[in-house]
Amino acid sequence: DNLVIALHSYEPSHDGDLGFEKGEQLRILEQSGEWWKAQSLTTGQEGFIPFNFVAKA
């Protein structure tokens, strides 16, 4: 599955970004460039995340 774990917390800075906490698990929905579309397994919310803040779970 496309699961990743957050290496750092991220505060959203643009509409459509997904904020998350360090250690949170996310499911990657789309990989494109440096911003990936993801869904939080904690909150169920979707949005874009910086790819370098996460690692394969």
Rank of each mutant, 00 (worst) to 15 (best):
L18Y: 04
P50G: 02
I5R: 06
A57T: 12
A38P: 00
D1I: 11
I28T: 01
S9V: 04
T42K: 15
G19P: 09
F20R: 01
F51V: 11
E30M: 08
A6C: 05
A57S: 11
L29A: 02
V54P: 02
K37Q: 06
P50F: 07
N2S: 10
K22N: 03
L18A: 02
K56H: 12
G16A: 07
D1K: 08
E30S: 11
W36N: 01
S9Y: 07
S9T: 12
S40V: 03
L7G: 02
D1T: 09
D1M: 11
P12Q: 06
L18I: 08
R27Q: 06
T42I: 13
L3K: 04
G19F: 07
I5V: 11
T43E: 02
D15C: 14
K37T: 07
Q25D: 03
Q45V: 08
I28Y: 00
K37W: 15
D15T: 11
L3H: 06
E21V: 14
Q25N: 08
F51M: 14
D15S: 11
W36V: 10
T43H: 02
L41K: 03
H8G: 06
S13F: 12
A57L: 15
G33N: 05
L18F: 06
S13C: 15
K37F: 15
F20W: 02
K22A: 11
S40L: 05
K22S: 06
Q45M: 11
F51H: 15
A38R: 00
D15F: 11
G47Y: 05
D1C: 15
A38E: 01
E30T: 10
V54G: 03
H8C: 15
I28A: 00
W35V: 08
Y10M: 04
S40E: 01
P50R: 07
D1E: 12
L29W: 04
T42G: 07
V54K: 00
L26Q: 00
W36H: 02
L3Q: 05
G33Y: 03
Q45P: 00
K22T: 06
L7T: 08
Q45T: 06
E11V: 14
A55F: 08
H14L: 08
E46V: 15
G19D: 02
K37P: 02
E46I: 15
F53C: 15
S9W: 06
E11I: 14
V4H: 08
L26D: 00
K56F: 14
Q39N: 02
A55V: 14
G19S: 08
N52K: 07
Q39Y: 09
K22C: 10
D17M: 14
D17H: 15
S9R: 13
G19H: 08
E34T: 12
L18P: 00
W36T: 07
F20A: 01
Q39G: 03
A57I: 15
L7H: 06
G16W: 15
Q45Y: 09
L3E: 04
A38V: 14
N52F: 10
D1P: 09
V4P: 00
S32Y: 13
E30Y: 11
S40I: 05
L41Q: 05
E21M: 13
H8P: 02
P50Q: 06
D17S: 09
F51I: 12
Y10F: 12
L7N: 04
R27H: 06
V54Y: 04
H8W: 13
S13H: 15
K56T: 12
E21Q: 14
L41R: 02
P12C: 05
V54W: 03
H8F: 14
L29S: 02
E24H: 05
L18G: 02
Q45G: 07
A55P: 03
D17L: 13
G16S: 09
E21L: 13
K56P: 14
V54I: 07
I49M: 01
A6M: 06
G16V: 06
I5S: 03
P50T: 10
F53E: 07
F53Q: 06
F20D: 00
I5Q: 04
L26T: 00
P50M: 04
S13E: 14
Q25H: 13
E34D: 13
T43V: 01
E34V: 13
Y10R: 07
I28C: 04
G44W: 06
K22I: 09
D17N: 10
A55C: 14
I49G: 01
G19Y: 06
G19Q: 08
L26I: 05
Q39K: 11
E34I: 13
A6F: 03
I49L: 04
P50L: 06
L7A: 04
W36E: 01
A6H: 02
G44A: 05
S40G: 01
E11A: 13
F20Q: 00
S40W: 01
G16Y: 10
Y10V: 05
G44P: 01
G47I: 03
D15V: 13
E46Q: 12
G23Q: 01
A57V: 15
S9N: 11
K37H: 09
Q39F: 08
L29F: 06
Q31L: 06
I28V: 10
P50A: 03
L41S: 03
E46N: 06
E11D: 08
G44S: 05
A38S: 01
Q45L: 13
P50V: 05
F20S: 00
G44V: 01
L29C: 06
K22L: 07
L29E: 00
A6Y: 02
L7R: 05
N52C: 15
T42D: 08
L7Q: 08
S32I: 13
A57P: 12
N2A: 08
S32L: 12
V4G: 05
D15Y: 10
I28D: 01
E21P: 02
E11H: 14
G23L: 02
E46L: 12
E24G: 02
A38D: 01
F51T: 07
G16T: 09
G47H: 02
P50E: 06
T42N: 10
R27L: 14
A6Q: 01
V54S: 01
G33E: 04
F51Y: 14
K22W: 04
W35P: 01
E46D: 06
D15M: 11
I49R: 00
Q25V: 15
E46F: 12
F48L: 11
Q25K: 14
I28E: 00
G19M: 06
I49S: 00
G47Q: 00
F20Y: 02
